[in-house]
């Protein structure tokens, strides 16, 4: 049983009279611990696919089994609970809450999950240390650099120790060097066992992934696996 099993997924957006097939008949199986880069031209359905994987969106047809459980039929709040426990998101535009400090942003998922404050503090402190942000705990997002912001966002996405980390163009707003730093961070998390699915336009980043899914016009055109590197 694969960690992620998509079968016959359709996602159709209704725009007035016309319909946009953002995803057509997508089937995709991803094992736990895989590192997948989703690539393809703009408008090919990459973000739509990632949103479905993250339970932020529902397909019009098809089945999505996450860890063996059909999650397409869950209620909104049940899906929220799955997101809280199993899925972490990293966005291109960071999505930090501007009025909260770095530490408070990182603590958000813990707070939403109802974890008591004293336990939160130690976990947040450790996460900030892990991502090289100790000195920035009490800075607000507008006092941080782009790379620091994305590191805060990654710390936040992983603070609940999710099984699945979804990143939609995580380096899209960063310069090359900072982008590579962030990519390395994500790869470290993958190396530690987290399934990593990254949407990217950056070919070099795509090259690094062990598996590349190429999308075109809502369908998977190619699904390339790099043979395991010689040890």
């Amino acid at each position: 049983m694969a960690q992620i099993e998509l079968d016959g997924i359709d996602r159709i957006f209704q725009l007035g009279d016309s319909q946009v097939h953002a995803l057509r008949d997508v089937a995709l199986h991803i094992e736990a611990g895989e590192y997948v880069a989703v690539m393809g031209p703009s408008g090919s359905g990459k973000s739509t696919l990632l949103n479905l994987l993250g339970l932020l969106d529902r397909p019009n047809a098809g089945h999505y089994r996450l860890e063996g459980r059909d999650v397409t039929t869950l209620s909104a709040d049940e899906q929220a609970a799955v997101r809280s426990a199993r899925i972490g998101f990293v966005f291109q535009s960071f999505h930090l809450v501007p009025r909260l400090t770095a530490a408070e942003n990182v603590a958000l998922p813990l707070m939403l999950a109802g974890i008591p404050a004293h336990e939160r503090a130690s976990r947040v402190a450790r996460a900030l240390r892990d991502f090289g942000l100790e000195g920035r705990a009490h800075h607000r997002p507008d006092e941080l650099s782009g790379g620091q912001r994305q590191r805060v966002a990654i710390a936040r996405a992983t603070i609940m120790r999710p099984a699945l980390l979804l990143a939609d163009e995580p380096t899209g707003n960063l310069d090359r060097a900072t982008g590579q730093e962030v990519t390395a961070l994500l790869e470290d998390l993958n190396a530690a066992g987290m399934t990593l699915i990254v949407v990217t336009h950056d070919p070099t980043m795509g090259e690094r992934a062990r598996r590349r899914v190429l999308m075109e016009d809502g369908a998977i055109r190619e699904d390339l696996r790099r043979s395991p590197e010689p040890a």
Binding site: G54, L56, A76, D77, A80, A81, R83, S84, A85, I87, F89, H95, V97, L108, P109, L112, A113, R156, M160
Partner: peptide, 16 residues
């Protein structure tokens, strides 16, 4: 709105 979307992505229930 963006913040609300984020909270939902982070697992906030509608009730919360």
């Amino acid at each position: 709105t963006g913040e609300i979307g984020l909270l939902k992505a982070l697992g906030a229930s509608g009730r919360a």
